[in-house]
């Protein structure tokens, strides 16, 4: 790796000061599973890695059934899925946290890093969108909140400005009779990048026969992870069954704007979106009915 500096600030203010001063030449280091490889392979030219794991807010994980979930931006995946209450309350998020890389990657990789890396195929982003996560961002100008579906702006690009960092992700408490799920397709069983992914959430009525709210989000089929509002809206109020699920799936397919690359053709990806949305909705509805 080229010669760089390493800083380990203990406060958000210290970290933001370095990010402000160095601009593009400084990058946060959370789990390092993207950034270390990118710097080593000359895909990012930086002068300093800012290790944010010593900042208490960025490393904290808190769940309160009344208030919801706060995930520090650098909390590694394993802490989320090994937390029994969180795993029970947010199975749709766990679907993604437990499939990033292998065990070694999950020891380090964070949701904040997955999001800030802004890959169209980032696996935790669709479930975060489905679960209405909010990004808490801090910079010299103070604090601001951005819904997660607005965070990524292009491959590798986010709304973060000079001197800003992601501090936390906030998720509302799970609503009664709600369920979520994330599914992706990869050619192997483990350790690969999604050819397509679908994260969905549903909230059912008291009889558990209709949806009163639903969200559908996709990975790897557009320049950024995608919230498909019309697919969610189509599920609301109709009788829950195959016809309704098919309709939501075809709206998601219509919204997908995939490219062809070595992982799959655009046509193949569109086909996968239909299947993944249907299967993910079936699981989310089952979870909502069981919960």
């Amino acid at each position: 790796m080229k010669d760089i500096d390493y800083a380990a600030p203990k406060t958000i203010a210290e970290a933001c000061a370095i990010l402000q001063e160095k601009g593009d030449k400084a990058r946060c280091l959370a789990g390092g599973t993207d950034i270390i490889v990118q710097v080593r392979e000359h895909r990012r030219d930086i002068d300093v890695l800012v290790d944010i794991k010593h900042i208490p807010q960025v490393n904290a994980l808190n769940y309160d059934p009344g208030k919801g979930l706060t995930i520090g931006a650098a909390v590694p995946c394993y802490r989320i899925y090994e937390h029994k209450e969180i795993a029970k309350a947010y199975p749709g998020l766990i679907d993604a946290a437990a499939l990033i890389g292998g065990i070694q990657i999950q020891s380090r990789a964070s949701l904040g890093g997955n999001l800030c890396n802004a890959s169209p195929a980032g696996d935790t982003i669709p479930p975060l969108i489905a679960l209405e996560a909010i990004c808490v961002i801090v910079g010299a100008g103070g604090m601001r909140e951005v819904p997660v579906e607005k965070f990524c702006t292009a491959p590798g690009k986010t709304v973060l400005g000079r001197g800003e960092m992601l501090v936390q992700l906030k998720l509302p408490p799970p609503k009664p009779r709600s369920g979520a799920a994330y599914l992706r397709f990869i050619p192997r069983n483990e350790m690969d990048i999604a050819v397509a992914g679908a994260g969905v959430s549903v909230v059912l009525d008291e009889k558990k026969e209709k949806c009163i709210a639903a969200r559908v989000a996709l990975a790897a089929v557009a320049p950024t992870p995608l919230l498909v509002q019309e697919a969610g809206a189509a599920l609301v109020d109709g009788a829950l069954g195959d016809a309704l699920i098919d309709k939501a799936a075809s709206l998601a397919q219509a919204a997908a704007k995939p490219i062809s690359d070595m992982r799959g053709t655009a046509e193949y990806r569109k086909h996968l979106v239909g299947i993944l949305v249907k299967r993910a909705l079936t699981i989310a509805i089952q979870r909502a009915r069981a919960g």
């Binding site: 390493y6 380990a8 280091l29 789990g31 390092g32 599973t33 270390i36 490889v37 080593r40 392979e41 890695l49 290790d51 794991k53 394993y78 890389g101 292998g102 065990i103 070694q104 990657i105 020891s107 380090r108 350790m191």
Partner: peptide, 25 residues
């Protein structure tokens, strides 16, 4: 680059790829 596991060590009891951990960490 994190794919092969040949560099595996435990860091505070957790299995990690030591090629994806900075020495200073």
């Amino acid at each position: 680059n994190g794919n092969c596991g040949a560099c595996n060590v435990l860091l505070d009891g957790r299995l990690v790829n030591s090629c994806l951990v900075m020495g200073a960490e």
